[in-house]
């Protein structure tokens, strides 16, 4: 049985790790203390925890101000609000001034479930990728989220960390290295390369097992850092495999797949397929049902792989 853990708990524990490592770490939240799991930090470091109330725009810029006096602030809310409600603050104050503000984007993806479309953030990558100085990490599981959160305090400037609500399979381990900005090879293969971020890494690995049975060797790459993206590992995959599938729990327009495509068309054009949300809002349902309904499962990755192989 595969172990299940929440990435948001990984974020919460990562904040505690960060708080222990640096006195400068401060955490802000907008009335979502428990559901974003900043509660662990709040309990251990009450003096460095700031409740801002339901005022996300203010929270983003209070974080900006804290960074200007030497703090390392994390502001936290659901990703839909952290990006869309605070976009002007992110653009003009935080990114244009290149401030050392970290953003915890909770409830990323459709797997948020029954709360429905308003709370399922599906556009953060597209939005944030277009902001100069912004860095975006989409970790795949509990451990990676925890490590990314800790690592972000040593990355200068704004960093966004995207994580989800539900229990998801653990793919990495406590000792797996996390290197910001670097993709990681999870399985070698030369027929098709499947590049995944976030929880889609698990689905990609499951797809690779299936494909193997049909004699297809899929290369699986985990790209947790969506911006800046690891161009080398993508170019190598394109030139060695000759076909690419991307998988993300996010809109395909402007998202992770688009980021990969930008690298490929400039360097080593090969056929590509995009697994992700196909330009629609989400809806209520159980997480697993939604992942199936919106074609975000291993079987969908397999279909995309077969399709791209036919175009090779």
């Amino acid at each position: 049985m595969v172990e299940l853990k929440k990435t948001r708990v990984g974020f919460g524990h990562g904040l505690v790790d960060a708080g222990r490592k640096s006195e400068k770490v401060v955490v802000l939240v907008g009335d979502l203390r428990d559901s974003t799991n900043v509660n662990f930090f709040a309990e251990e470091f009450p003096q460095r925890f700031i409740e801002v109330g339901i005022a996300e725009q203010n929270m983003a810029n209070v974080a900006a101000g804290l960074s200007l006096v030497g703090k390392i602030p994390f502001f936290t809310t659901y990703g839909a609000f952290a990006t869309c409600r605070c976009l002007d603050m992110l653009r003009v104050t935080i990114c244009y001034s290149n401030l050392n503000v970290k953003i915890g984007g909770a409830h990323g993806g459709i797997s948020v479930g029954p709360d429905g479309a308003t709370h399922q953030a599906l556009e953060e990558i597209s939005i944030l990728r277009s902001l100069p100085n912004m860095k975006v990490i989409v970790p795949c599981d509990y451990y990676e989220t925890r490590k990314a959160t800790l690592a972000s305090i040593d990355i200068k400037g704004p960093v966004y960390i995207r994580f989800g609500r539900e229990n998801v399979p653990v793919v990495t381990g406590e000792k797996t290295p996390f290197e910001f900005g670097k993709g990681a090879l999870y399985r070698d293969g030369g027929d098709v390369a499947i590049l995944a971020c976030g929880v889609m890494l698990y689905e990609a690995l499951a797809a690779a097992d299936e494909l193997q049975r049909d004699g297809i060797d899929a290369r699986i790459i985990n790209i947790h850092t969506v911006k800046p993206i690891d161009e080398d590992i993508i170019i190598k995959a394109a030139s060695e495999c000759g076909a690419i599938v991307t998988a993300e729990e996010h809109q395909v327009y402007g998202g992770f797949g688009s980021a990969v495509a930008e690298v490929i068309v400039k360097n080593s054009p090969v056929p590509m397929e995009f697994v992700g949300i196909q330009d629609s809002f989400g809806r209520s349902g159980q997480p697993e049902e939604l992942m199936q309904t919106y074609h975000l499962k291993a079987v969908d990755i397999i279909k995309a792989a077969m399709k791209v192989l036919g175009r090779k």
Partner: peptide, 16 residues
């Protein structure tokens, strides 16, 4: 801090 979009400075000042 850079500025030009109105309504942001007071929050920044609060954080500082």
């Amino acid at each position: 801090v850079s500025a030009g979009s109105l309504g942001q400075g007071l929050s920044i000042a609060c954080g500082a």
